[in-house]
């Protein structure tokens, strides 16, 4: 198939929009832009090089009606859906590791209570713990936005955020 704008050797990152999740393998890059209080959940199996990225916005899918239709929207259902799809592709459940980024608290509004970012972080950690998936690296909280790029083949999660003076900070997890 003809695809517009793709140059050989420079694979276009697959965009994982808010509430979406994508599973892939090898050198494909999965990218989520502008996470504020949302949490990016990256799972991968280093042996089979199969991994996935979810851009979750809410903590609790089990309590929501539409989590069947939109598993990527909630931290708990996103982790389970990622795991299931990875295993279906050949990943081995027991070797899967997790990395998390995001969950900032950008605003201090009364209506936000303890912070919407914190609630998402807690939910993602709790679900990983419950399923016995080791959390190997994180870049969480604070008050800056983040853009993440995940390569399942290497398990590298690049986290970009910008400082107040406009300079960009890149962290590899």
């Amino acid at each position: 198939m003809k695809t517009y704008g793709t140059e050989p050797g420079a694979p276009t990152p697959v965009q994982v929009g808010i509430s979406e999740l994508t599973v892939s393998d090898g050198d494909d890059t999965l990218k989520s832009y502008g996470l504020g209080s949302c949490v990016a959940i990256a799972l991968y199996d280093p042996e089979t090089e199969i991994g996935g990225l979810a851009h979750t916005m809410l903590p609790d899918g089990d309590a929501a009606e539409n989590s069947d239709r939109k598993p990527g929207k909630y931290a708990d259902t996103a982790i389970r859906a990622l795991l299931r799809r990875m295993v279906e592709r050949g990943a081995s459940y027991t070797s899967v590791e997790a990395k998390l980024a995001g969950g900032s608290d950008m605003f201090e509004f009364d209506s936000f209570g303890d912070g919407v970012g914190q609630r998402n972080i807690a939910a993602a950690k709790a679900e990983l713990e419950k399923l016995g998936v080791p959390l190997v690296a994180t870049d969480l909280g604070g008050d800056r936005g983040r853009t993440v790029e995940f390569t399942p083949g290497t398990g590298a999660l690049m986290v970009k955020s910008s400082n107040e003076d406009g300079t960009q900070e890149v962290t590899e997890l």
Partner: peptide, 15 residues
């Protein structure tokens, strides 16, 4: 706020 646009909006959407 001085940040990537989407990051400014998502907390509100989440709440």
């Amino acid at each position: 706020i001085h940040d990537i646009g989407a990051a400014a909006v998502d907390p509100v959407v989440i709440q």
